[in-house]
């Protein structure tokens, strides 16, 4: 009796874990039912309007509609590529995003680890809430504050530097310094918010691991580095992949509000470039083409990042 039961369980277990085999509706029908609604949703609301990307390949005439407008193939893309400003915007988008990633990505992780170590629960809870407040302020407001703090001659920081006998620092008027200010403002605004997902991941860490480490004599820092950090590694990897996938997109408000005429060389990105193009009819196709270009690159990026992470033994997004 026991033998047959064990056999059954083994077979079921194998079936459960099996990745091969065809459509097993009998076994999986519930899963397919679950999928049904989202799939219907996405077909209706995302795939039906998808024909809008055709605008990138047409000389869009709003009176003729998307289908009747003249097909121009890759002409829009060619036009974009010959625009000096476009190439510069492309370069700037990549550059700022890569820097954002390199500098800004570790900060929330670090903050989450520190928050986790806080013993006073009240302080912890209050800090968490206060830390993410700037995320809710629009860039227009943050930009105003950055200006008040960092403008070259009248900004507070420079006033302090001058009073201490130093030279004013062109935080916002010199394009190299501007990049630093730009990065810092991003961290300032978003680091607190980004700790949330890591805090959620940290709560999932198996407490018994800590106990075992305690027995082995590990100190606090050791525990943080060898247990907490590796335990949230899957979360970190996923967030990293997703962010790499966003390398080609950049919000409009942040570079627009923080940028100015003097630092255009670095501050003009794809979103601000499209904005400057204006939305008169002829430009609709151009701006859609720019968006399409971003999408293609983004998809390639996230697929590559995913591939790399899988090769390194981490689970990817597929």
């Amino acid at each position: 009796m026991d033998e047959t039961l064990k056999c059954e369980r083994l077979k079921s277990r194998r079936a459960w874990r099996s990745t091969s085999g065809g459509w097993n509706i009998k076994r999986d029908w519930q899963l397919y039912v679950m999928l049904l609604i989202p799939v219907v949703y996405i077909v209706i609301f995302k795939y039906i309007p998808m024909y809008g990307v055709l605008i990138a390949f047409k000389d869009f005439n709003i009176f003729q509609g998307i289908f009747k407008s003249e097909w121009v193939g890759t002409e829009m893309f060619q036009q974009l590529w010959t625009m000096q400003d476009f190439r510069r915007a492309f370069r700037n988008t990549l550059m700022l995003n890569v820097l954002d990633l390199a500098v800004g990505f570790p900060v929330p992780v670090f903050l989450a680890l520190c928050l986790n170590e806080l013993k006073n629960l009240k302080f912890k809870k209050i800090s968490q809430t206060l830390l993410y407040l700037p995320y809710f302020m629009s860039w227009v407001i943050i930009g105003g504050i950055v200006y008040q703090l960092f403008s070259t001659n009248t900004g507070m920081v420079n006033q302090i530097i001058k009073a201490a006998g130093g030279e004013v620092v062109p935080f916002l008027t010199n394009k190299w310094y501007w990049v630093i200010t730009y990065l810092f403002s991003g961290i300032w605004r978003s680091a607190g918010w980004n700790t949330i997902i890591y805090m959620a991941a940290i709560t999932g860490v198996d407490a018994s691991l800590y106990e075992a480490a305690e027995v082995d004599g590990a100190g606090r820092i050791r525990k943080m580095i060898s247990i907490t950090l590796p335990s949230i590694k899957p979360t970190i990897v996923i967030m990293l992949i997703m962010q790499v996938g966003q390398m080609m997109t950049i919000g409009f408000e942040r570079p627009y509000v923080m940028g100015n005429n003097l630092v255009m060389d670095f501050s003009d990105v794809l979103s601000t470039f499209v904005y400057r193009l204006g939305l008169q009819n002829g430009k609709f196709s151009l701006s859609t083409a720019a968006g399409f270009f971003q999408s293609v690159v983004g998809l390639i990026l996230i697929s590559s990042a995913n591939l790399i992470s899988e090769k390194m033994g981490q689970r990817g997004i597929w």
Binding site: Y47, V53, I66
Partner: peptide
């Protein structure tokens, strides 16, 4: 669909 969408008009 995270990357490609039709835009406001469609």
């Amino acid at each position: 669909t995270m990357y490609f969408s039709g835009g406001v008009i469609p």
